[in-house]
Design a protein around this nucleic acid. Structure first.
Lengths: 229, 229
DNA sequence: GCAACTTTGTGCACTCCTTCACAAGCGCTT
DNA sequence: AAGCGCTTGTGAAGGAGTGCACAAAGTTGC
């Protein structure tokens, strides 16, 4: 009866086995501990850190435990150790070359975002085909025509690309990125990109976020009218 | 937080009980079915719709089933019905007034985002205290000093606000929004906002998204070196 | 050097979400 | 009008994520 009951699948995944939900919170934790370090804090308890990050202490401890045991019982976590360990897990030690396609307002905003270098990213190129943009300088980089993508991607080994174009252009931009060897895409265009399964796409969509807020707002409103007679 | 012992634990939550994970996907579904309607498609199966939205058919059907039974067995879903039902669930019939605080590149990009009206939102004001911005016109609206917020919020009944300021200003902007009666905040500043528990905050953070991509990229690379000997 | 105190790390139970598999139901064809 | 093929809707199972509670392990004070 117990033919394959002992198959080692029930074991909690260890090396490299950080749960997805935890991965999603690591950048937040990283930001918070860096801020603490800037404020001169050297040691922090899970309770204080959790409060700052807006999560529960138990969740925070469990998340950190996936990276190893870097806390000191009775004391807390050393901030510098957390920065190093979370950073290592996120690959901040490496320097990922990144390109942005689309230099409208959004592309401008992203290019001028100050936190690239300190988080392990290096912005290597901006692409846009609008004639009035090509050749201009944005955030210290010269805007290049999109046709230059393959060359840049090959030279710099770009694996991560940001799509900040209008919706109609997004799919063919994504296709070109994939063809150029990019296999992680951050998509700000309000479309669902169709890419090979080997490519990882994350979608950031203003309207979706607003609609989720509105949904909760509406539900709250309904509850209130019910509760408040 | 609230102790509601009588909450239907055995019974499947019914009226207004759409699971959070489903809520997060409804805007995506809505966008996809609207696109289909624009293309002249009148009927769609869960399989086709799921493929277009990038989710599994079973998940899609279960998600839609929380809104009611609006499909026809053997045929599929009528696109126009889905638009109406998902729209109703998301509160698109109402028109939520929204304000944006911070009119840098990001604020510009958000203000010029075309999809507000068609998704149940109405952008009622832009705020920024930079002297060179106040009084200028952006996306058909005149940029106003942040001090005008309370008046606008009261007049238009604003419940949803977008924070597109630099990090240092975000917290006090959030405080002012809350004081003005806004209780849903979409925060693009890379900080954790501290707000009363009655206020709903969603955070959109470029760096976090990139870091999650980088994490997977790194893991993929490690796997490859391991697998490929 | 020991006891009291503090805080981590984690097993366990529980809830939430996803996937599977199939009966129920609808339209089309013959 | 009856059967056949297709697709929805949904119970049930499985898996992932969260919260609880406490033992383990470190520090401080005496």
């Amino acid at each position: 009866m117990t033919d394959r009951a002992d198959a080692g699948r029930d074991v909690v995944v260890r090396r490299g086995g950080v749960p997805e939900a935890t991965v999603g919170r690591l950048p937040l934790y990283h930001r918070v501990v860096v801020d603490l370090a800037d404020q001169g804090v050297e040691t922090v308890s899970s309770e204080a850190l959790a409060a700052t990050a807006g999560v529960s202490p138990a969740k925070l401890r469990k998340d950190l435990s996936f990276l190893g045991s870097y806390g000191t019982r009775g004391v807390g976590y050393e901030v510098s150790v957390l920065i190093d360990q979370i950073g290592a897990e996120l690959g901040i030690s490496s320097e990922w070359p990144v390109v942005i396609v689309g230099v409208g307002h959004l592309g401008h905003a992203l290019a001028n975002y100050g936190g690239f270098a300190s988080r392990g990213f290096r912005l290597v190129a901006l692409f846009d085909d609008a004639p009035q943009l090509v050749g201009t300088e944005v955030a210290g980089l010269t805007v290049r025509p999109f046709a230059d993508l393959p060359a840049v991607a090959r030279t710099d080994g770009v694996l991560i690309g940001v799509v900040a174009t209008p919706a109609p252009a997004a799919q063919q931009v994504a296709d070109a990125l994939v063809a150029a060897g990019v296999n992680s895409i951050l998509n700000f265009a309000p479309v669902v990109l169709s890419v090979p399964s080997s490519v990882d796409v994350r979608r950031v969509d203003l309207a979706s976020e607003l609609q989720i807020l509105a949904f909760h707002q509406q539900r709250r409103g309904n509850d209130l009218t019910q509760v408040a007679r």
